[in-house]
Amino acid sequence: MKPEHNTPPAVTRRDFLRAGLRGAAIAGLGGVAGLVAGRSTAEHLVWQLDPQQCTRCGLCATSCVLEQSAVKCVHTYAMCGYCELCTGYFEPDPIDLNTGAENQVCPTGAIIRKFVEDPYYEYTIDETLCIGCAKCVDGCQRFGNGSLYLQVRHDRCVNCNDCAIARVCPADAFRRVPASQPYLLKQTH
């Protein structure tokens, strides 16, 4: 029924070669795994930016792969002067010290200004509006206490292998940090 060359020998040359190459591939993969296993960590690493290195260039707002950047402004309240004329909130030359859009630095009105007691005002960030443009950070850093700064928010960050913001950051401020301590918050001295 079948031509005689169709009956294969017990182990063909091709099978033997394949088995040999397969063994070599497994050994090679094992070798690579062994080499890098020493440098691997069970803990996951996530992206974060160091506020001390940040130059408030504004690229965080536009470079993230998400439609609305994963980087947002955060506030260390203990550092804040609670200024009435907050340079993170108001334009350099405000027409009036009120919540009018023309007076605000924030392009999306994401900073909420609330009277606490004379003469102190509290500023909080509405994260649903914040786009991470760092305009308020710049004002606060230049003329204020620097209590406003940017951080990667991990409820939004998708943790790209090749972070698109880190790639363009002019200050090299982005680095991978352990997921158990995913923020580099400013502390009071």
Partner: peptide, 14 residues
């Protein structure tokens, strides 16, 4: 007045 705390939403759990 009590200072608000800075929220730190955690990364995806291990």
């Amino acid at each position: 007045h009590v200072l608000p705390t800075t929220t730190t939403p955690s990364a995806r759990a291990l």
